[in-house]
Nucleic acid binder design. Structure first.
Lengths: 343, 343
DNA sequence: CTGAAAGCGCTAACAT
DNA sequence: ATGTTAGCGCTTTCAG
């Protein structure tokens, strides 16, 4: 067991050629012509001996490790972002690269250490990712490197960003409601997330609300009210319950996240209100449970897989490494939570 | 920008010592004594020049890359396993190792390729992980290597396994019910998952049921029935609804997963049954939404973080690399879904 | 068409 | 206490 790994020298010796020749045929290069006979012998020997290249040694010479680092704040941990990792992993694999994933846990100090760890291991490029869309300032170490920003923006830093198209998603939510006939009694739960911790709202909130209001206005409709709150299930429950207790009769709820919708469903159910007969609900994210709710929730999906895939494509494509912001569409998942308004 | 990386030779030259000396002080070794003066000069030079070691080059010599590979079927993708990755990532970081995560997507052919990719990059060890606990047969490439099995068992393969303690979790679920006073009308929804695809049940199901029945019996209680089905939300809904329609009056439900519980709650609500006043519910997993349900769900938590952490600890500890099965406790999250039986 | 030899950045015997 | 030298496994001029 665990016998010495076979090296290229072993293969060359066994095939009766020089190591140079072996190197050329094994790396499949054609600029230096090798006789088919020798070529065959080398390949045969490699197979017989179970030769596997030592990528570490190779990259010491070539300066290329075929490795992409992904450093994120807390993406791996968030329940719905697994698809982002998967998209990136599959794209990397398709291009014969290895994706090395690290996570800072939101700790700014850990960040430099992790980035250095990646760089010390000669990562060719790094994807800098955040859990939710926001502005960031990159660690020093990344300046002058091949970088792609995933789910974040760093104005002034010359690298492409990949983010979900929240504005268009806001418009799409509005259109879903308009198409069903809604023109009034529409409330936005969660809004811009303009709460004490984030008084100016958060990126996704601001963009979604912008698209939502724009498209509503274009359809000669409007929002009856906006409730600013955090975006958790408890918040949705509390706020919708409060809304109802205040004597309002909403016809449609635009919830900031599926979690908010989850809480909203509970408040609605407690009040004996039926979705979608009495109140329609449209949401954003498309977490797993959105499909399990009764009725299943209509929502605009965060395109995690595509986000991860595109980031890798960009980073591998020299031509596309300019400071463009790539907005990835958020596909609508139309299920059962939207109906015509009650008459 | 992007100027040439500074090497150890640069540091040595700048400090006016040989490269050997530089190597010794920079790698912090003490077996060869270096004058404090020289030592200081080297450290100073390294700092001035912004020296960073080239780990690739180092490992070419030392044969150790300080890298652990994690190859999983589809763990990164599953919504509740982020903590597993985080536990492993943090433990690796604490021991100054890099964790490289890859995922096969369940594709057996991709597996060899990925493992080879890891090995070609000289990973020191690999953690082989699966999404749910099951028996596996490892790819050839892993034989004779330093391996830890995460969430899976490979009888005959000489490596430790780390799995959740499902048997004890089953017992704990029983005890929760017994303590509340339940002795009858207890149904297990999901059971062993003895469905057409897995006629003999799955590992977690079998172990949980074993612990559950054992502890119930010890408490002079028993199961009124076991419903074998898949473990999704729809399944929970369908089966509990069916149970009720068949005229049964369950007092307590032991649901195989939180997803099953999710569906069970819906069926119970539709039937106008109150949790926990009329029916108690206890579950396994502790997904996010378990805490959001009304009432919040009492469940035995899958110890993802600890699973990931322990796997890394084991793999870094030569002494503990024997074929032991490490069972990690599943902590009870006692919330509001268990009450005394109605009289 | 093929081989000899140098060297990537670092560590480790072996001198001194 | 420090320096010389060889070499990890591979790629790549440069000669033949």
């Amino acid at each position: 067991m665990a016998r010495r790994r076979v090296t290229m020298a072993d293969v060359a010796r066994s095939a009766g050629v020089s190591q140079t020749t072996a190197s050329f045929v094994l790396s499949g290069r054609t600029d230096k012509r090798i006789s088919t006979a020798a070529s065959e012998r080398v390949r045969e020997a490699a197979r017989m001996l179970g030769y596997r290249p030592n990528v570490t040694a190779r990259s010491l010479r070539t300066k290329s490790t075929q490795t992409i680092g992904l450093v994120s704040d807390t993406i791996t941990t968030t329940p719905y972002a697994g698809d982002l990792i998967r998209g990136a992993l599959e794209a990397a694999r398709a291009r014969e690269h290895l994706l090395v994933i690290t996570e800072t846990g939101g700790d700014r100090a850990a960040e430099s250490g992790l980035v250095n760890g990646l760089l010390d291991r000669q990562a060719d490029a790094v994807i800098y990712a955040t859990m939710y869309t926001r502005y960031v300032t990159l660690p020093q170490e990344l300046y002058g490197r091949r970088v792609v920003l995933l789910n974040c923006l760093a104005p002034g830093f010359d690298a492409p960003s990949v983010i979900p198209d929240e504005i268009e998603a806001g418009r799409a939510a509005a259109r879903l409601l308009l198409t069903a006939g809604h023109t009034g009694g529409i409330w936005a739960i969660g809004g811009h997330q303009a709460v004490p911790a984030t008084p100016d709202g958060i990126f996704a909130g601001n963009e979604r609300m912008r698209g939502l209001q724009e498209a509503l206005r274009a359809g000669r409709a409007g929002l009856e009210g906006v409730i600013e709150c955090e975006w958790g299930a408890e918040d949705g429950y509390r706020e919708v319950r409060g809304l109802l207790e205040d004597g309002h009769t909403p016809r449609a709820l635009v919830c900031a996240t599926d979690r908010v919708s989850f809480g909203a469903y509970q408040a609605l159910a407690e009040a004996g209100l039926s979705v979608p007969d009495e109140v329609s609900v449209v949401s954003f994210d498309d977490q797993d449970f959105a499909a399990w709710l009764h009725p299943a929730l209509s929502t605009l999906a965060l395109p995690h897989y595509e986000l991860g895939r595109l980031a890798v494509e960009l980073i591998l494509d020299q031509e596309r490494l300019d400071a463009t912001v790539h907005r990835v569409p958020m596909p609508p998942r139309v299920r059962g939570s939207i109906g015509p308004p009650p008459d």
